[in-house]
Nucleic acid binder design. Structure first.
Lengths: 136, 136
DNA sequence: CGTGCACCTTCCCATCATGTCAAGGTCAAG
DNA sequence: CTTGACCTTGACATGATGGGAAGGTGCACG
């Protein structure tokens, strides 16, 4: 199986497959006489695993660990769970930060006329750091 | 005022001030005879404006627009509000994506024993794409 | 006046995951 | 044999930021 077919089958682009090989996330694929990379069912499973991990937002480093655990028959599920929970916490933290920013900006936007006049609490806040519109 | 003092005063690192100058976000600072950049009160205001904008998650491109509006006395606040609302929507979208990932992963994690045994619904899902633990 | 230290300058490289583009080799069908 | 689709490597870009090297400047203290 060529890299293009493997890409099609797993949803990982050919570009990324080569990249993952280069950074050592996956082992180097076999080659034909002409130098084409060749992929078998095992490789496809690994690539699909990576794709699903990325879809869940795991970083390359985390995927590296997950792959190692996946291929370790003596693994403890606690370790997998730890990585997952860590990642959940990271994502929750990102959401918190976004929520804070959205909250502030929503408040400012709500107090902005949004018409042709130039005065605007959003710019006011950005310029001075004063909330001026501490209305509530 | 030196770049270091300006950085201290505004919370924008010297590194980033130079960078913003290079990409044309701020105009080139004046220089002393020796080539040191010099900053005045106006420059500090601009840098603080940028810093607050970044704290609210605006991209450089958006900040460029906001700065232009800020310096335009004939601006319409509707334009500022539009940029802000656009940004709010972007952030909400990011939160939605995160929430989806967190939801899925939480579900998997909740069904993982997290003990010394190797079987683990998280790895199961990553490997096969089957939710196996469609318990509820 | 000299020395040392903190600061400044420019320039290059790294991150992270991904995309784009270019120049050239290979394969299969017509 | 040509054409077109595919493969190869390599370089460069993104966005915002950090790190570091190599060399010049400013100031205070002895």
């Amino acid at each position: 199986m060529n890299i293009g077919e493997a890409a099609e089958a797993t949803g990982v682009t050919a570009k990324m497959i080569r990249h993952y090989e280069q950074i050592g996330l996956i082992k180097a694929a076999g080659r034909t006489g002409a130098g084409y990379r060749v992929y078998g069912p095992n490789d496809l499973s690994t690539l699909s695993f990576i794709r699903r991990s990325r879809d869940l937002g795991f970083s390359i480093a985390q995927i590296r660990d997950l792959l190692a655990l996946w291929q370790d028959r003596a693994r403890a599920s606690s370790e997998v769970k730890r990585i997952a929970n860590e990642h959940i916490e990271e994502m929750r933290e990102k959401m918190r930060l976004l929520q804070d920013m959205v909250g502030t900006l929503e408040h400012l936007s709500a107090n902005c006329h949004g018409d042709a006049r130039p005065d605007c609490p959003i710019l006011q806040q950005l310029a001075t750091g004063d909330a001026e519109t501490s209305c509530c």
